[in-house]
Structure formats: structure tokens, C-alpha cells
Design a binder for these strands. Structure first.
Lengths: 188, 188
DNA sequence: TATGACATGTAATCTGTTACATGATTAG
DNA sequence: CTAATCATGTAACAGATTACATGTCATA
């Protein structure tokens, strides 16, 4: 039933709704006011996405009741929605995840703690770390092979990609340390 | 006439076709065999994109003539196409370019040398450098403001974004140096 | 009472994905 | 001759962008 592929925007919405219910408008404001605008801050994307999620049973909307209130529909994630969110967060990081941009991995991590707990967050980081290591060596091999065929600027652009991944790796390492530190005595 | 917005895939095709004419199949192979797969290696994207570019007068296709050859259409960029490509490469880097991912900036830089010359390539790097500096401080400000409201993992994910941009900045610095070095006595 | 911000949505259009279709050429 | 590969495409669908439409409430 709910086994349809959910696009990144859908997960972004699920992740934001999970800690507390919000309206479409609230979500839009979050997108446009933070650096989450990458996930579309246009109503033509958000409202249809919410409708799809509701149709799939992952969220449920209720019109707010109360005196003197504007019509406002609050969405909350259902158990099925939480489970889908968890599955997305907890699946291991693949080569494809890295090729297609770290954006989605970071989104998963951002929601990991509140949606799936500290262990899941750390597991995600470790999985990322492992996959990055093999990916980076693959990139170096590709760089060697391409060196003669592409112009200088092409090579430099490729090296930028490598550096970006190395940077991500070093972040992951320090994030694991930071994270384990901060949860000592915390929610864990 | 040709003032329509061209998606990233279109520019990727233009950039690859500019140094030498190629067929749709050749382009597809480049995409799928290198880390340019991000720009779609599916025929359902590439062939329609080529048709659009031809309709806009940015490329022109000619069926290869020759004995015993399979039907094969070679596309080459027209003067209008080269001019569009140059305009895309040469426009200054904006905040929006950074927010929406460095991918496209890197694509522009990768083609900069062969399509617009060494000066344009360096100008692009300097523009990137300048925009990055203001963007990074803006990100730090946002981090301060959000620190109390988001969970640990959210904060760490955000810091990853900051680090990524700092990494890009340091790459840009070294790329300028590298680039100026390599073109001493070169094509310049 | 009229202006603007709040809140929600729809319609047209464009692009990309997936999956399939077609024909030509080469290797076995 | 048959199978695989080369080379080109199309059709159905999903999702995003843009622009517009609608109605509510606060305030000047």
C-alpha cells in the first residue's frame, strides 16, 4: 500500500511534522526562511505533496477548531508515516546516495535524532563514513584515468568533487565524536 | 527568440558538444560512464533535450553520411549556442547559485576554459570566491539563531553545510593558483 | 471600508523517469 | 541465421515551477 517511492520533499515534510504538527503554511515558512528552500518553498509543490502523503496514509490533517481562527489545517504524522520516515533514515548509505548529492543524506541525519533516536543517528554517520571511504578511492581512480583527456578546468572541477567528499568524511568523523559527547547524560 | 530558460542538462550538452560534435549516443555514454550521470543518462531525457536545443537554434544536427555506417546524427553547437553557453559561464555567481548547489557552478567552470577562455575561467573562480565569503558569514549567523531550536543532529547537519562551503572556498583559492600556474606558456 | 497579510489551493506548462519500441549492423 | 549491440527514439506518468484564484481576518 504505502510502498510508493517518496520524493525528497515528502520526507522533508514528514521530518518536519514528526516532532510537532504543523500547517502547510507553517512548513512553507520554514522552507523559505531557512536554508531548506532547496526543497521548494512554493505552494504548488507543498500542498500537493501534503495531499499525496495524506492519501498514502503517512500523515493526517485536521482542520483546527477554535473561535476566531482562520481556517488552518494541521497535519500530524501517522504511525505508518513515522515508520516510513524511520526506514528512510535507517537504510544504509549507498554509492548512489553519494553520487546523487549529500543533500538527502544530510536531511536524513537532520531528522535522525528526533525520529529514530541517537543510535540510528550514529549508525547513519558510520554508514556514511564507510561508504565515503570506498567512494573517494574510486574517484581518485577516475581522476587518474581522465587526466589526459579533459582540459585543466575539467580536471579542477573534478578535484573539487573529491575534496568535497573528503571534507564530508572529516565532518562525519568529528560529528560522531561531537554527537557521542553531547548525548552523555542527555536523552539517550 | 533564444531567450528561454535552459535547464542544467541543456548546458551540459552544449558544453560537451562545443569542443567537438557528437551524437546523442556518444553523449549518453559520457554521462553514464563518468560522474556526470547526475545530469541524467536516460535517452528519454537526452534526445528530447537535444531536440529542444535544435529548435532553439543552439545546436544543429546532421546525419552522418558514409558507407556502411549506422544512422547516426552528429550535433554541433551553432554560434548562437556558443554565445548562450558563454553567457551562462560568464555571469557572476549569485547567492542563489550557492544555495541551489555548487553542481551547476562546477559544470560552468568545467566548460569555462574551452568555451570562453582562461580569463573567463579565472573570473568565474574569483566571483565564486567573493560570493562564498559573504554566504559563509550569513550561514554562521543563521547557525547562531537556530542553535537553541533544533536538535543536535539538525545543528550538526547545518554545520556540515557550512564546512562544505568553506571547503569550496579553499578549493577556489587553490584552483586559482593552480590554474594561473598551468596556463603559463599554455593556450593562453 | 479598504488594504495587506494570512492561509490554502488550482491550472498550465515543463522537464525528467521509466519502460518500451524500432531498425540497422556485426559477431558467432 | 540469430543474437547481441548500436543508435535513436516515443509514450505514459510523476513532480516541480510559475502564476493565478479564493477567501479570511486584522488594522488603519
Amino acid at each position: 500500500m504505502s510502498e510508493k517511492k517518496i520524493p525528497a520533499l515528502g520526507y522533508a515534510l514528514l521530518g518536519l511534522l514528526q516532532p510537532q504538527p504543523q500547517s502547510g503554511y507553517d512548513l512553507r515558512k520554514i522552507f523559505s526562511s531557512t536554508s531548506m528552500k532547496t526543497y521548494s518553498d512554493s505552494p504548488g509543490a507543498i500542498y500537493p505533496a501534503l495531499q499525496r502523503l495524506e492519501k498514502q496514509g503517512l500523515i493526517r490533517g485536521k482542520v483546527e477548531n477554535g473561535v476566531g481562527l482562520r481556517r488552518r489545517q494541521l497535519f500530524r504524522v501517522t504511525p505508518a508515516g513515522l515508520s516510513a520516515l524511520r526506514k528512510w533514515i535507517e537504510r544504509p548509505v549507498t554509492r548512489g546516495d553519494l553520487v546523487w548529492g549529500q543533500q538527502e543524506i544530510m536531511l536524513r541525519f537532520a531528522f535522525a535524532h528526533s525520529a529514530a533516536g541517537a543510535d540510528a543517528a550514529i549508525a547513519l554517520l558510520r554508514s556514511l563514513e564507510a561508504e565515503l571511504k570506498t567512494y573517494i578511492s574510486a574517484l581518485y581512480e577516475e581522476l587518474d584515468k581522465m587526466k589526459e583527456f579533459v582540459p585543466i578546468s575539467g580536471r579542477l572541477a573534478f578535484e573539487c568533487g573529491i575534496r568535497g567528499n573528503e571534507c564530508l568524511l572529516s565532518w562525519a568523523d568529528s560529528a560522531i565524536a561531537d554527537y557521542e559527547n553531547e548525548i552523555k547524560g542527555g536523552t539517550r
